[in-house]
Amino acid sequence: MTNGATASGPSTNAIHAGYEPDSLYGPINTPIYASTTFAQDGLAKLRGGYEYTRVGNPTITALEKTVAGLEGSEYAVAFSSGMAAVDTVLRILLKPGDHIVISSDAYGGTYRLIQQIFTQWGVENTVVNMTDPQEVAAAVQPNTKVIWVETPTNPLLDIVDVAAIAAIKGGATLVVDNTFASPYLQQPFTLGADVVLHSTTKYIGGHSDVIGGVVCGNDPEFEEHLRFFFGWVGAVPSPFDAYFTARGLKTLPVRMERHCDNAEAVAEFLSGQDAVARVCYPGLPTHPGHDIAKKQMRRFGGMVSVLMQTEEQAKALCMNTKLFCLAESLGGVESLIEHPATMTHLAVVGSALEVPRELVRISVGIEDEADLIADLEQALARL
């Protein structure tokens, strides 16, 4: 199975799409091609299509094909980080005088890049409530080139109706950051997305040990642009990073099932606590985006956010847990907890993307459910 998209199921694709044991030694796992350069069979005659790792490497290619197989796209291009992927997509799609529509609950790093760098180049942006397609439609201008969607959003876990946004995007490119859902839970191309990207640091890698990003698409011209930036700008993953990401990807489906099981249990437990004002989890029937999430997601994900009654309670909860580690990032096998207003989203304080100070974001891992609930129970008891 060496092509990008295949007709097999997600668990089969996660393990097999993108790589077959080679005919020389037959390794089951993709070898780490730790070589900067490759021997050529003649002048401009590349052996297997590889010349220099900055423009292509077999280990990186295998990872790209596996991700493409899971997303159902024609290709995927790997980058050294999620932000390198974001920056590359924005640089390809935007030029001075263009306009981008972005969610009021978007990843802070993406907004910071747009606001602090791209505005200096003359790119305009409008922040909207992306859960309201009419508000998105009203924000679209003649010079709108990109509509940037995250769903579920970070950190409030709002759900955006991708198909509804695709129906009103006009000539703009619809980009979906699919990091929180992963390609196992959601496939935005089937909903009308033009470009899909991930921070592979999160669920795709899944073990909090490697940083990376990937951009998926179906337009050959866009792929040419991606490959240009991949090689000539040089934001490439190392073969070692690609290997670790691909190794994590093999267990994505089984990990996501356990993440979802545990997150559902955590969300239900927290919903009944007096100190909790609101639980933000799309799997709860009370969530405003629950019906849309049911329609466009396989399950509801491993992220749970909660609004405590006070900021002091939010900070205390983060400090009181023992099994949930106080740390940034998400999507690893271990459970993490954080206070976005003073951690991951500190940079957007005072902006249109400022998050509530009583908010706690939880990345629910794959530990035993009873242990996770017990830890939250003892932490809440100490508020």
Rank of each mutant, 00 (worst) to 15 (best):
R91S: 14
E71N: 07
P96A: 02
G82Q: 14
S80W: 08
L93D: 01
S80K: 11
T53D: 10
D98S: 00
S81A: 15
H99F: 06
S104G: 15
L46A: 14
T59M: 05
Y50N: 10
G82T: 13
E64S: 12
G48S: 11
V77P: 04
V86L: 09
M83F: 15
Y52C: 11
L90D: 10
S81L: 13
Y107P: 03
L70D: 05
V67T: 09
V55K: 06
V101A: 02
P58N: 13
G69Y: 02
A85G: 08
G56W: 05
A78P: 06
F79A: 03
Y52F: 14
L63K: 06
A76Q: 06
G97H: 00
T53Q: 11
S104K: 14
I100P: 01
L46M: 13
S81D: 11
S73Y: 05
T59Q: 05
T53W: 03
L94M: 05
N57S: 10
R47W: 07
A76Y: 04
I60C: 07
L93P: 02
S103K: 03
A44H: 11
Y52H: 13
S104T: 07
L94A: 03
D98R: 00
R54Q: 12
T61F: 07
L63F: 15
G72M: 04
E64H: 12
I100S: 01
A106E: 15
I102C: 03
T61E: 15
H99K: 08
L94R: 00
K45F: 08
V67A: 11
V101L: 04
Y52I: 13
S104A: 14
G97P: 00
L63W: 07
A106P: 08
H99P: 08
S81Y: 06
G48H: 10
T61D: 15
G69L: 04
G108M: 01
T53E: 10
S80V: 13
R54N: 13
G97E: 00
N57R: 09
L93F: 06
G72I: 04
Y52L: 12
Y107H: 13
D87M: 07
A106K: 04
G72D: 05
R47Q: 09
S103R: 03
V89T: 14
A76L: 07
T59S: 13
H99S: 12
L46R: 11
L63N: 07
A78L: 05
R47L: 11
A106L: 15
G49Y: 12
R91I: 01
G108W: 01
L70N: 08
